[in-house]
Amino acid sequence: MQTPPSLLFKPLAAALFSTLVLAACSGGQQTPAAGQGGGAPTVGIVTVQPQAVELTTELPGRTSPYLIAEVRPQVTGIVKKRAFREGSEVKAGELLYQIDPATYQAAQDSAKASLARAEANLYTARLKAERYADLARINAVSKQANDDTIAALKQAEADVAAARAAVDKARIDLEFTRVSAPIPGRIGRSAVTPGALVTANQEGALATVQQLDPIYVDVTQSSTELLALKRNLAGGKLQRAGADAAKVQLVLEDGSVYPAEGKLEFSEVSVDTSTGSVTLRAVFPNPKNELLPGMYVRARFAQGIRQDAVLVPHAGVSRDARGNAVAMVVNGESKVEARMVKAERSLSDKWVVSEGLVAGDRVIVEGLQKVRAGAQVQVQDVVAAAPAAAPAKAN
């Protein structure tokens, strides 16, 4: 049976009606792709202007104790008492350990008795020598007998001297049973407890005392940079802190600046032949023991003020295949130029550019991925190159 023609046209009419309805709802709007034209892209720029900035140099380093002493016993014996708390501050001469003094007290008493006996023998020998000297003058005794009494007197004097030395030795050994702090500072953990046997001048230390106020900071740099630092110090570009010393600030691991100022010594340095670097030593006050041995820090030296520094945000400087610094600049015809520059230092989030840019240059910092050299662009100011508060460091 054939289908009536009217039924064949109904689906086609429905599809046409749906298309017309969608077109009416769209209101004739174009798709985003249709709306895109071939106009010049917009880029964000900063206009550079010379300005005064403070330049500094930062060197990596680590803290180390000003003084360090390993405590070892100088006599053998049993530890009777430990007189300090681990991690506490101790003073020079403060008792740390008490070694059993009984045997050393007895040795001192014996030495004193030997000295008394020697002094008594000396007294007898002196009297005999005096009598024999009188008798020898009248030839009442032989010359040999007189010589023998003189020799006996000298022997007795030597015995007294030896006995006194023995007493001193016994006294020193007895004093060494009191193991005292050799320097002031913070003492670490104890390697022994009461009841332990220790020996004179043993290899292992009983404890270690470190003086942390003041504290050293050892920094490293190349020998060429050291020569430049010395020239800047001699020329007055570095602030002096005494003869052959420069003022220095300390930047801690968390980026904060240590509140106290130190000084960097330039004396007694040597070059490491394998690396060509030198180690310099700075001294900082540390009254609150905020600085601990082994901390990683950065030493910062003020090198003076540069009056005509050109600052460019980091985003405005890239590197070519050869590693040269390049800035994309918009010229007076609103076209992009690739400009070779010399990025001398990093200053916070900006580069200090010493060559390649002049006052008024418009450097692209946003939209670099959309342009190339010679392209026509539209510009939009992003931010002015304001003076940075953070110090500069060598690139």
Rank of each mutant, 00 (worst) to 15 (best):
P214I: 08
Q210F: 03
A234V: 11
V209I: 15
G235A: 13
T208K: 12
T220Q: 14
L212G: 10
Q221H: 06
L206P: 05
Q239P: 04
L233N: 08
N232M: 15
G235V: 05
T208G: 05
V217K: 03
Q221G: 08
S223C: 03
L227R: 13
T224C: 03
L233S: 13
D218G: 03
I215Y: 01
L238F: 07
T220I: 09
V219L: 11
V217W: 01
D213A: 06
V217E: 01
S222A: 02
T224R: 14
Q210M: 15
V209F: 00
V217N: 02
S222Q: 01
T220G: 07
T224H: 09
V217F: 07
L238R: 06
V209G: 00
E225G: 02
A207M: 04
L233A: 15
T208C: 05
L233Q: 13
T208S: 07
V217I: 08
L238H: 06
V217H: 02
K237I: 05
V217G: 02
S222N: 03
D213L: 05
T224W: 09
N232C: 02
I215K: 01
N232F: 12
L206K: 04
L226S: 03
D218N: 14
D213T: 06
L238I: 07
V217Y: 02
A207I: 02
Q211A: 09
Q211R: 12
L238N: 06
Y216M: 04
Q239E: 14
D218L: 09
V209E: 00
G235C: 05
S223A: 13
G235M: 11
G235S: 12
E225Y: 01
A228G: 08
L229S: 01
T224Q: 13
A234T: 10
V217C: 05
Q239A: 13
V209Q: 00
